[in-house]
């Protein structure tokens, strides 16, 4: 970096700083969700009925669509990075746009689900709230926050991409991609845990 000095040399580990830091951060994120999952496992086993009953009111189809949105956006993210590295600006913009669209679609469906739950009074402080919904909202809520947090730099990079010089940092795209795959991966755990894995044999509620 400096003229006479070469203190700021190539990364010793050969992995760029941003990427290494992102791996570290994702390790941290993993432990964050592990906290929720740990609590979830303990309390689910102690309150099997409550969890089963709560889970039976969730809309598996919407969540399944959402899963495809996220997996799809993960794929387009990978394609975007691939094209960015090969200098295909047009395709880079296209796939980044599609990724954003997937994320947006995910959030739209999530908000449809949430408003339905609000209508039925499942939110905290509402009358039909149960321990299961506490987990539902804290886990999907933090996950949705992660989606939003990923979309902010994504929008920025996408808009920069339309400028004359394009978005010139493929490495940053790649780091964001790592994060985005993680968000996807977390959903792959949350989806079955909340929606699928809690059979309920009681009478299904009317709504």
């Amino acid at each position: 970096m400096s003229a006479g000095l070469s203190l700021a040399h190539e990364p010793v580990s050969k992995i760029p700083n941003g990427k290494l830091a992102m791996w570290g951060f994702l390790g941290s994120e993993l432990m964050f969700f592990t906290g929720f999952f740990g609590a979830f496992i303990v309390l689910r086993n102690a309150n099997y009925d409550v969890f089963g009953e709560g889970s039976s009111h969730l809309n598996v189809w919407l969540a399944l669509v959402n899963t495809f949105f996220l997996i799809g956006s993960s794929l387009t993210m990978a394609l975007c990075i691939h094209n960015a590295e090969h200098g295909n600006r047009g395709k880079q913009q296209l796939f980044l746009g599609l990724t954003l669209l997937g994320a947006l679609g995910f959030l739209v469906i999530k908000s449809i689900e949430y408003s339905d739950k609000w209508g039925h009074g499942y939110f905290p402080t509402q009358p039909h709230h149960t321990l299961f919904y506490s987990f539902y909202f804290i886990m999907t809520g933090f996950h949705a926050l992660h989606v939003i947090a990923g979309m902010i730099p994504m929008v920025f990079m996408w808009l920069r991409g339309f400028s004359k010089e394009g978005y010139p940092h493929p490495l940053k795209l790649e780091v964001l991609g790592l994060y985005w795959h993680f968000v996807d991966l977390m959903w792959i755990f949350i989806f079955p845990a909340l929606y699928l894995m809690i059979p309920y044999h009681g009478a299904a509620a009317a709504h």
Partner: peptide, 25 residues
Amino acid sequence: ITLGTPVLAAALAMLFMDNFLHTSF
């Protein structure tokens, strides 16, 4: 710190829900 602190963060979030929104983790 990288591996331990996030677990506290998760616990803090749950306790905040209990305190503020009257959930019951």
